[in-house]
């Protein structure tokens, strides 16, 4: 059986909120190392990958591999009943037809219990190779959201260019064109504001802004976002879910190709 207790319901609430417009139904795959999710959007252009390692929970117990097939709209309805600071416990049997969710206020004076019906989901799984990216950018997540939102007002696509001069986001549309250039920046007093750029070779790729703006719904999960680019491979946008390494929410986006 599965029993997983999260100290803050906020994490799961925000994850589901960030991905529910991209994917409707998905399996939460539970095993002894934690809870993972991988799902593509309907058009197979974007992929969501979530990993919550066992050490993100206390306690965590999962004796066998369990797939929890969840409709995210339904899960959203149940999670709405949890306060951000509630303690959240997930429970399921080995071959479950429902997921039990318990929300407890921190001072334990309120306990809410819900059962969510599960479904059988037969989803395609993609093997994502470990990649050494040509460019890795770590920046404030709200800054990335602002760039994507601002450029989407002009165009449906953005070209992201990484070079020794910095990272340049360029778009052009019917009313005109625009660009934003980011340079490495270190704020000694406020580390969250840092922009870190690692570059091994120049990169230029074009992406649909509609998807990028969608990914940015995860900005509330983490102060920083990591964006990884290599020529002719999907973009990776990654948000840390906890201070523990390995627990993250990742989005992959297939590039636009040719002219």
């Amino acid at each position: 059986m599965l029993e997983a207790r999260l100290d803050q319901a906020e994490i799961l609430k925000k994850v589901v909120d960030a991905i529910k417009d991209l994917v409707q139904d998905c399996n939460f795959d539970c095993n002894d190392s934690g809870i993972a999710l991988q799902a593509m959007d309907n058009s197979h252009v974007a992929l969501v990958s979530m990993n919550l390692q066992a050490d993100s929970f206390a306690p965590y117990r999962c004796d066998r591999n369990i797939a929890l097939g969840v409709n995210l709209t339904s899960l959203t309805k149940v999670l709405r009943a949890a306060q951000n600071t509630d303690i959240l416990t997930l429970r399921a049997l080995d071959a479950p037809d429902s997921l039990n969710l318990v929300f407890e206020s921190q001072d334990k004076d309120r306990i809410s219990e819900y059962d969510l019906k599960l479904m059988d989901i037969d989803q395609e799984h993609l093997g994502i190779p470990e990649t050494e990216y040509a460019a890795t950018i770590k920046m404030p997540s709200v800054e990335f959201r602002r760039i994507c939102t601002d450029l989407m007002a002009l165009s449906e696509s953005v070209t992201i260019e990484a070079s020794k001069d910095g990272i340049k986001f360029t778009c052009s549309g019917d009313i005109g064109n625009g660009s934003v250039t980011l340079r490495q920046h270190t704020n000694v007093e406020n580390e969250k504001e840092n922009i870190e750029i690692e570059l091994s070779e120049p990169v230029a790729l074009t992406f649909s802004l509609k998807y990028l703006v969608n990914f940015c719904k995860a900005a509330g999960l983490s102060n920083t976002v990591t964006i990884c680019l290599s020529n002719e491979v999907p973009l990776l946008v990654s948000y840390a879910l906890t201070s523990k390494a390995g627990s993250n929410l990742r989005f992959y986006l297939a590039p636009k190709i040719g002219d």
Binding site: A46, L47, H125, L126, G127, T206, V233, P234, A254
Partner: peptide
């Protein structure tokens, strides 16, 4: 203009 690619063009379907 540019064409939107799909993820299966880059990642292997398991």
């Amino acid at each position: 203009s540019s064409q939107q690619s799909r993820l299966e063009g880059f990642f292997k379907v398991m």
